[in-house]
């Protein structure tokens, strides 16, 4: 998820690109063939994927911050071990995704710089604070739940390396959602104070989670081309609806209330319909004015900068060993 695709729209490909090649490319996509790194692809396809995959990777990396915030305060060893494993998975997901983006001809260092300079976007959801332990439950249940809705169709994305990365991610993500739900369910069935804590977390995370699917279809810039190229298989609104339909009954099962007075079940369609989404909040968060945008970027920059000496030392060590090995070979040859 985490691919809200909000950067400026790409200029359409000019007539410069070979219409024949474009037609063959589209025919391959239509035939459900996968596109691989060395295959010919339209420049706009490449740019769209670099943007989407790198935003996705950045989101996984930044996503470690709100949860990492609770590692030392997890209420039991079981919860702590699970949370550490989950945060480590998020880091791993970021790495799979950066690798997939790199197959499109962009360097890792360049992608990292785009994140740290604030040029690249990441999912709006990670700019909200984790104020209580219940937030860790809410993130796993809602945020990872929303991510799975988005990521399962991405396993069939037309670009092979992205699709394969998503298969690995989805396998691991299921544990994330279940551990979150278990936290929420335990709190909801606990003391009145614990239940109130779970409800408070749901109140704060519900709308940001619903917004994770990105702008409504009526306002989305990227959907048409992405759908034609089978980068996306469902629209933002379709995925959002799937998420709502799956999640509302889970909240009710726990005895928690969705913070939306307009929420109602439409018996005819079988769907849950929600009230108005506050898109001004969404835009503000994306524009850098969410509750934690500056803190998140500052923490990422600090982590990157304080790791610089490790990267330099590792490269210097590798170079020294390479030179020593080469010298030993030369010496042996001279004997």
């Amino acid at each position: 998820m985490y691919t809200q695709a909000l950067n400026a729209k790409d200029a359409a490909d000019g007539g410069a690109e070979d219409a024949d090649r474009m037609a063959r490319f589209q025919a391959r996509i239509d035939a459900e063939e996968r596109i691989e790194p060395n295959d010919w692809m339209p420049e706009a396809y490449r740019r769209t994927l670099v943007r989407q995959i790198s935003q996705h990777a950045h989101s996984e990396i930044v996503g470690m911050l709100p949860e990492g915030n609770w590692v030392t305060r997890a209420p039991s060893l079981r919860r702590k071990a699970a949370l550490i494993a989950k945060v480590q998975d998020e880091g791993g997901h970021g790495l799979y995704l950066y690798s997939a983006a790199e197959t499109l001809g962009v360097a890792r260092e360049e992608l990292v710089d785009q994140l740290l300079s604030g040029k690249a976007k990441y999912s709006s959801i990670f700019n909200y604070p984790t104020l209580s332990w219940a937030d860790i439950g809410a993130i796993g249940w809602l945020v990872d739940g929303a991510a799975i809705m988005n990521q399962i169709p991405l396993c069939r994305c037309s670009y092979g390396p992205y699709a394969r990365a998503m298969i690995k991610v989805c396998k691991e993500e299921s544990f994330h959602q279940r551990q979150g739900f278990e936290i929420m369910n335990t709190l909801a069935k606990g003391s009145p104070a614990q239940k109130a804590m779970a409800q408070d977390a749901l109140n704060r995370w519900w709308w940001p989670s619903v917004m994770m699917f990105g702008p409504p279809d009526s306002a989305s810039q990227h959907s048409d081309t992405s759908m034609r190229w089978k980068i996306k298989r469902f629209t933002n609104d379709e995925l959002r609806q799937q998420f709502i339909d799956a999640t509302v009954p889970q909240a009710h099962y726990m005895g928690l209330e969705i913070p939306d007075p307009a929420l109602k079940h439409d018996a005819e369609s079988g769907h849950w319909t929600i009230g108005e989404i506050d898109w001004t909040e969404f835009k503000a968060v994306i524009a850098g004015n969410g509750p934690c945008n500056r803190q998140r970027l500052r923490q990422r920059r600090e982590a990157h900068e304080s790791g610089a000496w490790v990267r330099e030392a590792a490269l210097a060590h590798a170079e020294k060993r390479r030179r020593r090995a080469a010298a030993a070979v030369t010496a042996a040859a001279a004997e």
Binding site: A85, Q88, D89, G92, L95, Y96, S99, E102, R108, A165, K168, E172, R311, A314, L315, H317, A318, R321, R322
Partner: peptide
Amino acid sequence: GSLHAADAEMALQAARDVYTR
């Protein structure tokens, strides 16, 4: 999959962390 590492030894360690959890 793939990963970045300064040398072969670190690549093996990173591969273990990234791909065999």
